[in-house]
Design a protein around this nucleic acid. Structure first.
Length: 508
RNA sequence: GCCGCGUUCGUCUAAGGGUUAGGACACCACCCUUUCACGGUGGUGAUACGGGUUCGAAUCCCGUACGCGGUACCA
């Protein structure tokens, strides 16, 4: 029987979640869903010095906003916990010791100063960054070079690390789901630290042990991990056997305008790189998120999915459900993709148009409230949003395209109509309001028909009256088609606004 | 430096030996519209370079260039 598919996203809680991180989550999630598998979030907090308060909650909140809820996590529970590596500390040591027993690893006692000394001693033009590897390990202070007694003594008196003993002349290869076969020469990879002096594992040990214990079947991660893959492969071979190893897929990186996408790019070019606002608790510095910029989760997810993947057709708009159906890891690109904010905005615009306004009504409402406008009538609000959504790219755009539905104009931009304004037009509007008052069906179409008819009677071109009407209703040259504005405004409000404007126009 | 991964319009990409190298974003023009958008039509624009293999190469092989990643008791 096939093993149940289980995948994991394993962030370290060091700050906000950026585009690349969310995309990794997304691909994991899609793969899990389409294979009826489990999606696990495991917190990799093995570096205490980099731990940032609030980052865990932030990550989980972000996934919730995106609609990518894990099946198992520190928040969702599950049968394979704990889901925080700091709480699993004891298990790693066991495996590290076992590795030493079997001769695949060794204890090392070198101090940071000794390591520095070794590196600067060996540094040359040909070897820009000397590694702790087979060529130097026999000159260092470790259980390979020290006798048993001395090793025992040091083990109980000073801090030590466990290092993997990389074989010298082997090739390690594996089949990456995206890249195909990847081959490494073990001679060029160093004796990575597996267990740190504080007793915590490094990523290398922890990822292998936990993927095994949590029965992970497929491991997707960023391309930056590819160079350390041989360490992980070897660890699997030594500890659990290659048959049990998950299938790997190394995802291409998401790039900024010049090179790797960074927080700085966001600040420099004015686009978000984090999913949601992130406030660094140490500096109080806030980094803007896509959510707060006015992105819909549907658009954000869709845009991310297309950054490095497509289904081979020309379709670009996908719902999460469609992505679950159509996604395939083999079709993910090998090359990194440069992030384009313009295209991201296009996705958002498409999704604003596509979704019923009720989907994002609440988000827009809070934007309006932050501008001092509280929404009383939800039905009216939804109607307004529906009318103007075609012209909004980001959620805050709703403000400039619809605020006038909630506030009668206080000033009128009359520049465009001033010269042509006359008594005949004034009379026309007076009769128009009178006629409107007794109209039965209040709709854009019927209003336009009435407007046309009266204009013809008054022998004025309807076109010349439309702009004045617009300015009376909203105060300026903006907004949706004018009769649609009137329709949504309603009879009473429309007549009021025209009458007030007529008064104001007296002094024009 | 060494190791690894990559390279099709400015950007995201399709084309897995035979296409006028297709689409989308952006840009430009026109149309629609007596506000501004949306929308519609059309246009500019790419196989990094050099060698092979082949009747035929964006596609397969080799080399070069360029880019990215890694080279920590960070993940």
């Amino acid at each position: 029987m096939e093993k149940k598919v289980r995948v994991r996203f394993a962030p370290s809680p060091t700050g906000g979640l950026h585009l690349g991180g969310v995309r990794t989550v997304l691909y994991n999630y899609l793969f899990a869903r389409q294979n009826n598998g489990d999606f696990i979030v495991r917190i990799e907090d093995t570096d205490q010095s980099r731990f940032v308060a609030g980052a865990e909650e932030y990550i989980l909140d972000t996934l919730a906003w995106c609609g990518l809820e894990p099946d198992e996590s520190i928040k969702h529970g599950g049968g394979f916990g704990p889901y925080r590596q700091s709480e699993r500390k004891e298990t790693y040591k066991k495996y590290a010791d076992a590795l030493v027993q079997k001769g695949y690893a060794y204890y090392a006692f070198d101090t940071p100063e000794e390591l520095d000394a070794m590196r600067s001693r060996l540094r040359t033009d040909e070897n820009a960054s000397p590694q702790y590897d087979h060529s130097v390990r026999m000159q260092m202070r470790n259980s390979l070079t020290l006798d048993k007694q001395e090793t025992e003594r040091l083990l109980s008196t000073i801090p030590y690390v466990v290092r993997i003993k990389m074989p010298e002349g082997e090739t390690v290869s594996f089949t990456d789901m995206i890249r195909g076969e990847v081959i490494f020469d073990t001679a060029v990879v160093d004796d990575k630290v597996l267990l740190k002096a504080d007793g915590m594992p490094t990523y290398h040990l922890a990822v292998v042990v936990d993927d095994y214990l949590m029965q992970i079947t497929h491991a997707f991660r960023g391309e930056e991990w590819l160079p350390s893959a041989p360490v992980h492969i070897l660890l699997w071979k030594y500890l659990f056997g290659l048959e049990a190893m998950p299938q790997w897929a190394h995802l291409p990186l998401i790039l900024g305008p010049n090179g790797k996408l960074s927080k700085r790019d966001g600040a420099k070019y004015g686009f978000p790189v984090f999913a949601m606002n992130w406030k660094d608790p140490r500096t109080d510095e806030v980094t803007e998120g896509f959510k707060e910029r006015g992105f819909l989760p549907e658009a954000f997810i869709n845009m991310l999915a297309m950054l490095g993947w497509n289904d081979g057709t020309e379709q670009e708009l996908f719902s999460l459900e469609e992505l679950v159906q159509k996604f395939s890891i083999e079709k993910v690109h090998k090359g990194g993709a440069k992030f384009d904010f313009e295209k991201a905005k296009w996705f958002n615009h498409e999704w604003i148009k596509k979704l019923p306004a009720s989907n994002y009504k609440e988000a827009v409402k809070s934007i309006f409230e932050s501008r001092g406008l509280s929404i009383q009538d939800d039905t009216y609000f939804a109607k307004v949003l529906e009318l103007v959504k075609d012209r909004c790219t980001l959620l805050p755009d709703f403000w400039e395209h619809s605020f006038f539905f909630f506030r009668q104009p206080r000033e009128y931009n009359t520049d465009a109509i001033k010269i042509k304004w006359n008594i005949d037009k004034k009379t026309f509007f007076e009769s128009f309001t009178k006629a409107m008052a007794s109209i039965n069906s209040w709709s854009a179409a019927s209003l336009e028909a009435l407007f046309q008819q009266l204009a013809t009677q008054a022998e004025i071109k309807a076109g010349e009256l439309q702009l004045p009407l617009r300015i009376m209703l909203v105060g300026g040259k903006f907004g949706p088609p004018v009769f649609h504005i009137a329709e949504v405004l309603g009879k009473e409000e429309t007549i009021d606004r025209i009458e007030d404007a007529l008064l104001a126009f007296e002094s024009m």
